[in-house]
């Protein structure tokens, strides 16, 4: 069935009159220079994200303070990541089928690294992989993201070009801008509808 459908559809499309293929007009996406981090912060905060500047020395301590404030103790982490006393690190070290119950109900926060971030829209770029699976940034009610300041760029076009995305896309690439939200009921914003209710970004200013 699908083969015949394919042939019929393509035949109809090929028989149609063709328009000229237009050129891509010049377009320069916005850049921010020295104001890059300020722009990133403003855009992220505008969509209910929280942002803190930390260092490679003190980020773990900051996480433990931030999570203690929220009464969160059980934290899903990439295998090998250790957390200060007081937090229970639950490694995402098995396939989701084994961990479903823990992921859906059993942890209060999840920690991932960002591959990059985009100042223009206050966006985090994640390429989930075997160590930091896709659901780690989605199921726990609080998502904590570690971002190296050096990986903050101006716009999406820049990150795609610098990291040569077209040469090979990962299984899943994500752009995340704020916590999960909806405005489906009378255009009133509500957070945490299916994904995290809170998004906390720690910017490692010395990395």
């Amino acid at each position: 069935m699908s083969e015949t459908a394919r042939a019929n559809i393509l035949a109809r499309l090929r028989a149609a009159p063709r328009q000229m293929v237009p050129d891509r007009p010049d377009w320069t996406p916005p850049t921010y220079g020295e104001g890059r981090l300020a722009r990133f912060r403003a855009m992220l905060e505008a969509v209910h994200g929280e942002i803190h500047e930390v260092t490679t020395e003190d980020w773990a301590e900051r996480i433990s303070v931030l999570l203690a404030d929220r009464g969160a103790t059980r934290v899903m982490v990439p295998p090998g990541m250790t957390l200060p006393d007081g937090l229970v690190a639950v490694p995402y070290d098995q396939p989701v089928e084994e961990l479903k119950a823990v992921l859906v109900q059993g942890v209060e926060a999840g920690i991932t690294w960002a591959k990059a971030a985009i100042a223009d829209t206050g966006t985090l770029v994640l390429w989930p992989d075997a160590d930091e699976p896709r659901l780690l940034s989605l199921l726990p009610p609080i998502h904590v993201v570690l971002l190296r300041l050096g990986s903050l760029v101006d716009n999406l076009a820049q990150v795609m070009a610098e990291q040569t995305w077209a040469a090979g896309m990962p299984t899943n690439a994500l752009l995340i801008s704020g916590p999960s939200k909806t405005a489906d009921i009378e255009q009133t914003l509500a957070y945490g509808v299916h994904g995290p209710k809170e998004l906390i970004v720690l910017v490692l200013t010395d990395a």
Binding site: D129, A130, R134, P170, N172, A173, L174, S180
Partner: peptide, 17 residues
């Protein structure tokens, strides 16, 4: 909030998807 780009089913070693 999310832009979700999917290019493959779960690959060997990956834990979800």
């Amino acid at each position: 909030t999310y832009v979700n780009m999917i290019s493959r089913p779960r690959q060997p070693g990956e834990k979800d998807g």
